[in-house]
């Protein structure tokens, strides 16, 4: 399963090519779901699709380079019984995790979800739920 890891960079660290060097070093594809940089530092949310041992190794590499990491253990559910494919949620989703298919069904791709929770209250029948654990 894809794991999601939040990286917190301090202001100085944002200038170093840490992400690129780790990708090069491990050869693992690190998918950036969301990135934000400000004067105080930055945040990157990664999706890593690799065996657990490999993910742990990658986390360790970031920490060795002074990056704070946090694995996001959350889950989003689309209740297919309740959902009636109205699509109210899809234009709010910043990553395209929620989308309309060719036959106008609404689909959720959790791997792309950054748990921003914008979609949750927008659902008129409360078919979307995020759980944290």
């Amino acid at each position: 399963m894809t794991k999601k890891v939040l990286l917190k960079y301090s202001a100085e660290k944002t200038k170093e090519p840490i992400l690129a060097s780790i990708i090069k070093e491990t050869g693992t594809l690190l998918n950036i779901l969301h990135a934000e940089v400000s004067a105080e530092g930055g945040e990157i949310l990664l999706a890593i699709d690799a065996p657990d041992a490999e993910v742990n190794q990658i986390i360790k590499l970031f920490e060795q380079r002074g990056i704070e990491t946090k694995e996001l253990k959350r889950a989003i559910q689309l209740d297919e019984e309740k959902c009636f494919d109205c699509g109210a949620c899809i234009s709010l989703c910043p990553t395209g995790a929620l989308r309309l298919t060719d036959d106008y069904s609404v689909e959720l791709d959790e791997d792309k979800c950054i748990y921003c929770e914008i979609c949750v209250p927008s659902c008129p029948v409360r078919a979307l739920k995020i759980s944290k654990f």
Binding site: F84, G87, S91, L92, C93
Partner: peptide, 23 residues
């Protein structure tokens, strides 16, 4: 189609009514 141009940028569109159930 799911995307419309507004003020120079392409933005996502939500139907609000269910096209699948209309069909």
């Amino acid at each position: 189609s799911g995307r419309v141009e507004v003020e120079g940028k392409e933005v996502p569109v939500s139907p609000l009514s269910s096209l699948k159930q209309a069909r």
